[in-house]
C-alpha cells in the first residue's frame, strides 16, 4: 500500500510492459517451434525420397518422381503436425520420432 502511494504511475504500467514482453517471447517461441518443425519436416521429406533412391536405384526416374510427389504432400502435413500438435506438447516429439524412424530405415536398408 505505501508503495502504491509513492509510485502511483508505475503499478499499472508494469503489468502492461510485462505483458508486452511476454507476448513477444511467446511469438519468438512460436517462431522457434515453427522453424524446428520446418527443419524436421524437411528432413523427413528428404529421407522419404532417399528411401526410394536406395530401394529402386538411381536410374528409376519415375519412382523417384513419385517419391518426390509423396514428399511434397508430406512436407506441409508434417509441418502442421509438428507445429499444431505442440499445443498438446507432443508435436515436435512425434515429428522427431518419425524423422528418426525413416532415417533408421534408410540406414539399415541393404
Amino acid at each position: 500500500m505505501p508503495d502504491a502511494v509513492r509510485k502511483p504511475v508505475s503499478r499499472p504500467a508494469a503489468p502492461a510492459a510485462r505483458r508486452r514482453i511476454e507476448k513477444r517471447h511467446a511469438v519468438y517461441k512460436r517462431m522457434a517451434q515453427l522453424a524446428t518443425a520446418a527443419v524436421l519436416a524437411y528432413l523427413s521429406a528428404h529421407f522419404i525420397v532417399m528411401h526410394t533412391v536406395l530401394r529402386d536405384g538411381v536410374e528409376n526416374r519415375v519412382a523417384i518422381t513419385v517419391a518426390e510427389a509423396v514428399a511434397t504432400a508430406a512436407l506441409p502435413l508434417l509441418l502442421l503436425l509438428g507445429y499444431g500438435a505442440r499445443t498438446h506438447g507432443w508435436g515436435l516429439w512425434i515429428l522427431l520420432a518419425l524423422c528418426g524412424l525413416i532415417a533408421a530405415c534408410n540406414l539399415i536398408m541393404p
Binding site: R61, E68, A71
Partner: peptide, 18 residues
C-alpha cells in the same frame, strides 16, 4: 508444387545420372 518439387528438395546423388 509437385511439378518442380525437385527444386526445393535437397540435391540427391542420382541427379548427375538423370
Amino acid at each position: 508444387t509437385v511439378i518442380r518439387a525437385r527444386d526445393i528438395l535437397p540435391p540427391h546423388p542420382f541427379l548427375p545420372a538423370q
